[in-house]
């Protein structure tokens, strides 16, 4: 039992309740971080889905002939930023309107078959859906003189992009605050644990233990508590993911990439475990050092 690991295991056994409290506090901090990560990840997926779904509707001028609309369609289909382009004739537009809003049928009959303009429904490729790229694309259409109105939900795209940016910034700030708060909380908890074991530290000092000898098992205990806390936090996150967020998903119909809620990928999961171990080690180190500095 001379080694740091052996002494750490003995410490955990002798002070199981205090160790459980420390691990619990670390786990709570990690769950908060993880839930935030899950929310950000899935909202990013939603916003990114929204951005990809953005279409450009280009309405032809009333004088445009069928040849001109067909020519415009094939010309646009050849442009590198265009993924798909569909022609909606004036008749198709009128039929669509009648189907959804039957009450306007008499008015459409009175105005004739070209009451609504023909249009092109354009889907852009990934990388061409940013507000700036769509502005440039719309301007080029406008410059051709064929179209009366270009509609591409500019405001919506800008809002979605702005929301995503704010979300990421908020994530960074809140993440930092959460890690610091967790360190503070765990630090104070482990400080209480160390205080409860002050007799042991005092005796070790009296019999000639070096600071390194005293610190080592506490650091190992911190790492083990962080590891256990991480595993516990991952289980809770999985439960949260399957339960609460899935229910939310059912209640709020939104579009997700690949059709469902995502769980944290391997990278962030490993990072979460490392953060747990780091919090345990750092908090133990600081608490014991502070205590030893006061001991004779």
């Amino acid at each position: 039992m001379n080694g740091a690991l052996g002494r750490a295991l003995r410490g955990l056994r002798e002070h199981a309740y205090l160790a459980a409290v420390s691990a619990g506090v670390i786990a709570a901090a990690l769950v908060l971080l993880g839930v935030y990560g899950l929310v950000v990840l899935n909202l990013e997926a939603v916003v990114s889905g929204w951005q990809q779904d953005v279409h450009v509707s280009a309405y032809f001028v009333a004088t445009a002939t069928a040849e001109e609309t067909a020519a415009a369609r094939s010309e646009l289909a050849g442009r590198p930023e265009v993924l798909k382009v569909e022609l909606v004739t004036a008749e198709q537009a009128a039929a669509w309107m009648k189907e959804r809003m039957p009450e306007v049928e008499p008015m459409l009959a009175e105005l004739g078959p070209t009451a609504l303009p023909a249009s092109l429904e354009i889907t852009l490729k990934d990388g061409y859906t940013s507000p700036a790229a769509m502005d440039a694309f719309a301007a080029s259409l406008q410059a051709s003189g064929r179209f009366g109105e270009i509609d591409y939900g500019r405001e919506w795209v800008e809002r979605a992009s702005g929301f995503l940016r704010t979300l990421k910034l908020l994530g960074a700030v809140l993440g930092t605050i959460l890690v610091l708060a967790a360190l503070f909380l765990v630090g104070n908890t482990i400080h209480l644990v160390v205080y409860a074991r002050r007799d042991e530290l005092e005796i070790l000092r009296l019999v000639g233990a070096t600071d390194g000898y005293i610190l080592a098992p506490f650091v190992v205990e911190g790492a083990l508590e962080g590891l256990v806390a991480s595993a516990f936090a991952l289980v809770i996150l999985e439960v949260v993911h399957r339960g609460v967020l899935s229910r939310l998903h059912d209640a709020v119909p939104v579009t997700f990439d690949e059709g469902g809620l995502q769980f944290l990928p391997a990278g962030p999961l490993v990072a979460l475990v490392l953060v747990g171990v780091m919090i345990g080690v750092l908090a133990s180190w600081v608490a014991v050092q502070r205590f030893l500095a006061r001991l004779a």
């Binding site: 002798e14 007799d199 042991e200 005796i203 000092r205 000639g208 070096t210």
Partner: peptide, 24 residues
């Protein structure tokens, strides 16, 4: 402080309140 452990390893100390770990 770094030299204290070597001093204390060559010196035993006994107190009025024993300073034992009762659960061990």
């Amino acid at each position: 402080n770094r030299q204290l452990p070597s001093l204390r390893r060559n010196m035993g100390v006994v107190f009025q309140d024993f300073k034992l770990l009762p659960h061990r």
